[in-house]
Write a protein that binds this DNA or RNA. Sequence first.
DNA 1: ATGAAAGCGCTAACAT
DNA 2: ATGTTAGCGCTTTCAT
Lengths: 342, 342
Amino acid sequence: MGRVTIRDVAAQAGVSLATVDRVLNGRKGVSETTIGRVNKAIEQLDFRRDVFAASLATSREYRFEFVLPDVAHNTFMTNLSQQVQAASKRLVDQRIHVTETHYRELDGADLCHVLDGIVPEETMGVAVVAIDTPAVREAIDSLVERGVGVVTLVSDITPSRRLDCIGINNVAAGRVAASLIGRFVAGRRGSVAQIVGSLMLNDHVARRLGFAQTMLCDFPGLTLLPVLEGRDDSRVTAPLVGELLDRHPDLVGIYSMGAGNRGIIDALEDRGRQRDVVVIAHELTVHSRRALISGTFDAVIHQEAADEVENAVQTLKAFSDGCVGFVPPRVRIDIFVRDNLP
Amino acid sequence: MGRVTIRDVAAQAGVSLATVDRVLNGRKGVSETTIGRVNKAIEQLDFRRDVFAASLATSREYRFEFVLPDVAHNTFMTNLSQQVQAASKRLVDQRIHVTETHYRELDGADLCHVLDGIVPEETMGVAVVAIDTPAVREAIDSLVERGVGVVTLVSDITPSRRLDCIGINNVAAGRVAASLIGRFVAGRRGSVAQIVGSLMLNDHVARRLGFAQTMLCDFPGLTLLPVLEGRDDSRVTAPLVGELLDRHPDLVGIYSMGAGNRGIIDALEDRGRQRDVVVIAHELTVHSRRALISGTFDAVIHQEAADEVENAVQTLKAFSDGCVGFVPPRVRIDIFVRDNLP
DNA sequence: ATGAAAGCGCTAACAT
DNA sequence: ATGTTAGCGCTTTCAT
């Protein structure tokens, strides 16, 4: 008694292998009655197709493209890019070919140009770190129109016809940040700064939303300062935070929703304010890690780039395979304090 | 130009398919010189074996056993058991057969009995939620001696010859708990309670260690109360916490390291103390979730049972396949507050 | 020590 | 609408 194969099913149903295969893969050209008989045999024998044999027989090659911003100075994005390359290596022997293209940071026109250049004959799926402009949405929808599967990565663009967004729940992340800052200030009153990279990035906008909600609702003793845009760049965030500290002696908290952590750390430490300002930032990098250990940062909210790349690939593969009900695992919000650094 | 196969390698090296296979799988009976030639051909052609074809040809079936405590009243363990069953279903068509056996909770002799009853002919690997007694360690080592791969799950037993422990870093978890309680009490002074399930469970002991370290080091204003054993049972924890609250009016924090959360919640709410005591517990369940939302719990430290089952299976599979360098992904410490509940 | 050949279970092109 | 057959790339006897 070995494995139940389509041979057994064919015999039981009194049909040929090809017919079983047709039923199994929902191909047309089989009469209703035979479909019924085959399905009954499958049921009776508890047949389950051998995925290895199926993959071998099909010899299908998958081609996916990751479209990321070209940002050498952004440690998170650099890591994301490295994870794509690592996945690319790892997946070749599963016949999945992953390539990577870059667009100029925060440049919607360039992103559109890249997306428009993707040809369905070569690329079956695209994962894109989206910036939210109407033209980009249009480019994504047109790609979907041409039969390419698209997922947004890290930052979503909605409404659009992408299959899914692979990233954390940024509203929840913002709420957590508010909650932690609110409790960490230990009853002190004062003002709290909010720094995003750009309001064109939906993930930052969502964080800001959750943050403001919880702050206003649960911590009336704290005053929210207007949102600052740091362009995900330390050279911008450093003077921004410097000025912030000078102008607001009552500052008790900073929520940094984008990149440019180095600038924030430098500004705080230059002015010796790292102890009395509670700081929560995003993404664990060498810089934020050091800041956590030194106490300049109080918590870091993190998303694991490797998981996101993996989930994106699986989602695109499921789409290529024609799976309809595929739901990728939720990307988890990691919270790091000094005590649980990996 | 298709895929490079062992055919190509064989041609290039001037040998037969069988010889290439021998070299590829490190089987004996090949002269050094041919091994060299084959490896050179592999190198030159950048050959990589097709995992699907290999799996199909070997038709290998894996048999693993999960050994868990028999605890209907412990929501986390119940969930773990459900995850094992889910994995079992999911993995059959990868030819991985997972079964589950139970031992009487906290009963080392019974666990030994179960472990001793495992036969290497039927079971290639075992994942066990270990309780730390010399006899259990002995039983694990004897299993390893007989060629069965063993991983500990959730709670480790060391030193032992298990391949790995699949679970979170419990010392770090304890440190995080201390850090959060220390900051959440917002400068208040008072005493802090520590409740474990049993000191026979190494995960609880490790949490306690990390907790005490950070507490003593970073929060001298808080006094640690002696460790209480709640036997992972609400019927035990409820009166324990009730008495605790009555005896220590200055109680500002509770760290619950084991199960029995329901008892803790009930005791706190019965006495109306849920607001002024900071409580951190482990494992997100229906009960702890409700307590987070109502504010009775301030944070929950969580380990994802589904991930642990998955990692355990992969580790055992890698062992069965003779992979030496396999390192399972680290199981992450999830931290939940009211704002990031999934 | 090496080679030839028969599968593993499924798919797909080609017949009927 | 259904059947026949030749692979997919690797493993594994059984010869030599």
